[in-house]
């Protein structure tokens, strides 16, 4: 009897399984799969921490900089362990209003370059903490891909090695502005340097005059010392 019972159990369980798979087969297409580049999962909110860490962003997918709030303090650049952040700043003009950050700090420096190389970034989140203005933070946007498969000007290998699209430059300032500012600053620096040179030359001349007087007095002493050392050296040399 156990034999027939076994057969019955086998058939009934198989039927259960087949019913289940058929159910999935005829069901409308409530797929888990998404056709990735065409459809994407919705990206979650930035802050999804809970409790004390409610404001903590656990999703670290891409670094983002609110360049309007950046004061160009370079703290993030120094904090970065792999050196993937590079910042260039220029002084603003005297009396120029460069705006105020969201924390109320007035900006003193013009950030001409704020470059983050995401191909080197190791997502350690260390750069976000020193920022006094909270303007650099991790984003949840995970998509770094680009669709340049149709590009014909480079070979496939070059295309794969090319990581220029992974380098993000956040500075918004126009190149002409940067050039103008640089030129102005260089001009100022040149003028300053000239002044400095002039001052330095005068100083040097004064110092030189002093030097000659001192040198005469010291000369006799120096001769004496020279003779002593030579004598000392020869005796030692003979022994060896």
């Amino acid at each position: 009897m156990n034999y027939f019972k076994n057969i019955y159990i086998a058939i009934s369980t198989l039927m259960t399984g087949m019913k289940l798979t058929l159910g999935y087969f005829v069901r409308p297409r409530e797929y888990v799969t998404l056709q990735y580049p065409d459809e994407v999962w919705p990206i979650p909110e930035r802050n999804i921490g809970t409790g004390e860490l409610a404001s903590y962003n656990v999703i670290r997918s891409k670094l983002h900089v609110d360049i309007d709030d950046c004061i160009g303090c370079k703290k993030c650049e120094r904090a970065c362990p792999v050196g993937c952040i590079s910042i260039d700043v220029l002084k603003g003009d005297k009396g120029e209003d460069l705006g105020v950050t969201k924390n109320g700090t007035s900006i003193k420096l013009v950030v001409t370059k704020h470059q983050i190389d995401m191909s080197e970034c190791m997502f350690c989140d260390l750069c976000t903490h020193p920022c006094p203005e909270d303007c650099i933070y991790m984003e949840a946007d995970y998509r770094f891909e680009r669709n340049d498969n149709k590009r014909k000007d480079v070979t496939v290998k070059e295309r794969w090695r090319d990581r220029s699209t992974l380098i993000y430059d956040f500075a918004k300032i126009a190149q002409e502005d940067v050039d103008a500012r640089t030129a102005k600053i260089e001009e100022e620096n040149r003028l300053k340097a000239e002044e400095k040179e002039k001052a330095m030359a005068e100083k040097l001349a004064a110092a030189a005059a002093k030097q000659t007087a001192k040198a005469d007095a010291e000369q006799t002493q120096n001769v004496k010392a020279d003779v002593e050392t030579t004598l000392f050296k020869t005796t030692e040399g003979g022994e060896s």
Partner: peptide
């Protein structure tokens, strides 16, 4: 395709 539909997938697309 059949296996994909039975496993709530899409299969080759």
């Amino acid at each position: 395709k059949v296996s994909a539909f039975m496993q709530v997938r899409l299969g080759p697309m």
